[in-house]
Design a protein around this nucleic acid. Structure first.
Lengths: 189, 189
DNA sequence: TTGAATATACAGACCTGTCTGTATTTATAA
DNA sequence: TTATAAATACAGACAGGTCTGTATATTCAA
């Protein structure tokens, strides 16, 4: 049974559309008019939910963090069936991400570059996201080689970040394997 | 004796100004009007030297590659006086770069993110730059630990790239040391 | 009838790129 | 050396389009 479009539906459609367009073409390259056209909402509806484009940008980044978490949750759960090492599980999901058709790097890195201003709420949130992500990696490394291995997390984090931007520039996913191999070498000698 | 402004002076002033503004605020955030105002040239002079903004973007990236090369050349020459390991010399210069007041990451990474389109001449040039830079790192690692060590260059490259974007997002240079320590660990065990 | 989402028009700023016309410098030639 | 021609720089208005954000009027459903 199909429900009619409600207020919160519109909000959700705006978020999903803006997320997709921002990620695909860039935040500055996508105007409000295009978002409302593709989301099928009126301009006033957008400005009701998000008083300004900057507010929308922040909301989209928050929305995307949940998306990313869900994607990696699902992918890692899948790879855990065949892989033991938590780090190997992560890098298998990491590779899956790179092979996504619409892959264009990390939305938070991209947003930081585009926004330029480190005080922009979107930039601030991106900074927080990276902190949370590094903590997540720290958990994995500790799970893999014990409490002491957590000290390696910052280096593995850099490998991951470097692989992301490199894959975007090169237009291929090879960097994911380079990062994986180097991370495992750092971990297990 | 001061010479009067000549043709090539205007071109040079446009390049330097656009390079500075693009790097500082982003390519899309900086308009032609601002460039000509700060460079002190007429709009027609700019469009004579660079038929479109896209042409200017490409020229600026080419110009910056020379700048970057000159910066690292000078800095590495300086550090070679006290350091033996070529990789250590590089990472000392790398840290110097991070400590530059105007540091906002890698102009080529930033351009790739902003341009979004992998076929844009600026994006293509950025891809070439990264290839050249990785070759440069390969030379250093081979110089450090012999021909066989060249296989580690791609991993060290990822550490470097990751450190750049991380330093931008965090707003501090710590990542440079993390990358350095991990790279040396990979190289020398 | 009331409320909310819609389409549409608009304001004002900014964008890239073109155009006209003038000043200044450089090159050429008497 | 001096006069002229060519090249280049400058200033500033302008066109046509896009941007964000607001205001108004219309449709539609409860």
């Amino acid at each position: 049974m199909e429900r009619t479009r409600t207020t919160s539906d519109a909000r959700q459609r705006i978020l999903e559309t803006a997320d997709r367009l921002f990620y695909q073409d860039g935040i500055r390259a996508v105007g409000i008019d295009r978002i409302i056209a593709e989301a099928g909402v009126a301009k006033m509806s957008l400005y009701k939910h998000f008083p300004s484009k900057d507010d929308l940008i922040l909301a989209v980044l928050q929305y995307r963090e949940k998306e990313v978490l869900a994607f990696f949750g699902e992918r890692m759960e899948h790879h855990r069936k065949k892989l033991k090492d938590p780090l190997k599980v992560f890098f298998a999901a990491f590779k899956d991400w790179f092979d996504t058709p619409s892959f264009r790097g990390c939305a938070f890195i991209n947003a930081s570059v585009e926004l330029a201003n480190p005080d922009h709420p979107g930039f601030v949130f991106a900074r927080g996201h990276k902190e949370r992500f590094r903590d997540f990696l720290r958990g994995l490394t500790e799970e893999a080689v014990g409490k002491m291995g957590g000290k390696l997390a910052p280096a593995i984090f850099l490998l991951v970040e470097g692989a992301i931007v490199t894959a975007v520039i090169e237009g291929k996913a090879d960097a994911a394997d380079v990062a994986r191999d180097a991370a495992l070498k750092l971990l297990h000698g």
